[in-house]
Design a protein around this nucleic acid. Structure first.
Lengths: 163, 163
DNA sequence: AATAATAGTTATGATATGTAACTATCAGTT
DNA sequence: AACTGATAGTTACATATCATAACTATTATT
């Protein structure tokens, strides 16, 4: 912490006043921290953020198709394929052929998938509580409702662009 | 919207109640939208989110070193090198050798860099106003303060881990 | 029967992020 | 002065994320 030479040349305290006014700035910084911590949290379950999210969707929406899932996850169909491949290979989910429309699969979680999902959801909960520890309940509640409102607002915005 | 067959097999409305309880879920979805829109916004300036952020930091903190910048941007030093390379090649910034410590560079924006920065900041502002259009001012203010609090909280948390 | 649309896939490229190892330089110790 | 360790920047590399174009198989529409 004793960079006397540096102090004479470079600013000792970095100023981010300009960027601080941007929502995206805070969003990215926060997301990076949470993403990194969640990755560690999910590592024991051999899940990443994306595989976890997909698994939860499938557990909660048995029979949904890959297109529906990609839509729900807000990612492109091609990117979902390897995620589903991975979950299927690990026998956490199955791709059931739909008899009435043989183009698509009905995705369903296996018993193992449901069990892993439950554990991972609990771990995720603990991870968020850990990360937010120190904030009072009111702040946390405000945070959640503000983020939910933002997410909802932005999602609806893009919907009107796609359709 | 007339998928009568599908409705009998797959859920017609995807349920995300489980994930909706997670802060990270909303954070990721929101970030994706903003990131995509900001990328488009910055395209006319030939900037990406990262090059833009680096440029603003350098304009606002003339003389800072790459290590300081990487720290401020919360990225690893190696990843900053190509960003600085790009900005330098486009003559938006310069790497000044520090006479008192020849290991490091003092980063400074050129006139062109400062001009581009100003325009890009204005475009970013417009982009966020556009994305948040439709939300009332109170909601926007809550959002900003909540996100700033989160960002600040998480940043301090990681600091205590690093040092 | 011909054409268009949809579901899933493959291939590919751009971007982002992290780690290990290296060179050059500086700081502290003996 | 020489040795050791730390720091700044770099290179090389591996991986994850995300998007687009083009393809096959199947279904819907005309």
């Amino acid at each position: 912490m004793s960079n006397t030479k540096l102090a004479s040349i470079a600013p000792s305290r970095i100023n981010d006043d300009t960027l601080r006014k941007f929502l995206g700035y805070h969003l990215k910084r926060s997301f990076n921290v949470i993403q990194a911590d969640l990755s560690e949290t999910l590592k024991p379950f051999d899940l990443r953020m994306l595989t976890f999210t997909a698994l939860v969707f499938i557990v909660d929406n048995p029979g949904l198709s890959q297109s529906q899932l990609a839509d729900a996850m807000d990612i492109e169909r091609p990117n979902l394929v390897i995620i589903i491949d991975e979950l299927e290979q690990r026998e956490l989910i199955v791709r059931d052929r739909v008899q009435t429309d043989r183009r698509m699969y009905a995705l369903r979680a296996t018993l193992a998938g449901k069990r892993l999902c439950k554990k991972a959801v609990a771990a995720d909960k603990a991870h968020e509580l850990r990360l937010l520890a120190g904030l009072d309940n009111e702040t946390k509640a405000n945070l959640m409702s503000a983020l939910e409102a933002l997410s909802h607002h932005l999602q609806n915005r893009t919907e009107s662009h796609n359709s």
